[in-house]
Amino acid sequence: MPDFEMLRELRATRPDAIAEAAAKRVRRDRTMTDGRLMLVAADHPARGALGVRGDATAMADRYQLLSRLVTALARPGVDGVLGTADVLEDLLLLGALDGKVAIGSMNRGGLHGSVFELDDRFTGYDAAAVARMGFDGGKMLVRIDPDDPATVRTLESAARAVDDLAAHRKLAMVEPFLSRRVDGKVGNDLSAAAVARSVAIAAGLGGTSAYTWLKLPVVDDMETVMAATTLPALLLGGDPSGHPEETYARWGRALSVPGVRGLMVGRALLYPPDGDVASAVDSAVALVRGAEVAA
């Protein structure tokens, strides 16, 4: 069990402990050690997206989330984590980020279910903060709705973030979707053609794509999606539905497509139906490490 009493005490009495922990953290020489990446995603709460499998408050308990993250990060083959500052700093203070890849979540302004959900303003990390903390990159959500004027602001901000991260030689993880509001609810078009179009738009953001990676949903025709770019991609899990074995099978097929380098999955692994986080993570690691990297 993580030492939450220590965590609370440091938070209240020694705010400088966060910078000290970041400075002392054991870092990797390289982001990828074998051409693959297995990352755990934990930036959902900062956008107000707390639901898992119909439980609207599954991720509301921060102590439970941290316990699950610590378990996941300790499993062999897990490379690191994506999170907002509050989550990553908790993990730093708990000593869970040594030797791990850390990706800071950058735009959490489009709160889940809000009238301004598609206005994905940058309210989290910026490139300077990622570099200052010694982290490996920043992730940005880029939802593209042709009918929503807020989209162009998101695109402009994301392009600037890509450039700023590249200036610091940090990865820019771009998560694009073609989105549309129907009956007041935002939904993403997960057809292969729509995802491929979002890839084409996202890959062109910024003045360089040298440090750009893509974070993409798993669709039935991943070959069409990955034919749209030469950039490396990680697969996301989304809000899990259906039987885990079916999900793992889809991930396994997608991981064999050229250009796909691994997984960045959160809720499906941190909140499995049987509650066994370690087993769920181990299954995902086996898929990532067992899939052949296409030349």
Rank of each mutant, 00 (worst) to 15 (best):
D3L: 05
M6V: 01
E9K: 13
R11A: 15
P15T: 14
E20I: 00
A21H: 10
A21R: 14
K24M: 10
R27D: 05
D29R: 13
G35K: 13
L39A: 11
V40E: 07
V40K: 08
D43A: 13
R53N: 08
D61Y: 10
Y63G: 10
Q64A: 15
S67I: 02
P76D: 14
D79I: 06
V81Y: 01
L82A: 02
G83Q: 05
D86N: 13
E89P: 00
E89A: 06
E89I: 00
A96W: 05
V101F: 14
A102F: 02
I103W: 02
R108D: 13
G113W: 12
S114I: 09
L118A: 10
D119M: 09
D120R: 12
R121N: 09
F122K: 02
F122N: 01
T123C: 05
A129W: 07
R132H: 11
M133C: 11
G134W: 00
D136S: 03
G137H: 07
M140E: 00
R143G: 02
D145I: 13
P146W: 11
P149Q: 03
A150S: 15
T151H: 05
A166M: 07
H168K: 14
L171G: 02
M173C: 14
M173A: 15
V174E: 07
E175V: 12
P176T: 04
F177A: 12
S179Q: 06
R181V: 15
V182N: 09
G184S: 02
K185W: 05
V186T: 11
D189Y: 02
S191L: 04
A194W: 01
A194D: 02
R197M: 11
A203E: 13
A203Y: 01
L205A: 08
W213T: 10
L216Y: 10
L216C: 11
P217S: 11
D220T: 13
V225W: 05
M226H: 06
M226R: 15
T229S: 14
T230N: 09
P232Q: 08
A233V: 11
G237V: 04
G237M: 03
P240M: 06
G242E: 11
H243C: 01
E246I: 03
Y248E: 08
R250S: 11
G262T: 12
Y271F: 15
Y271Q: 03
G275P: 10
V277P: 07
V285D: 10
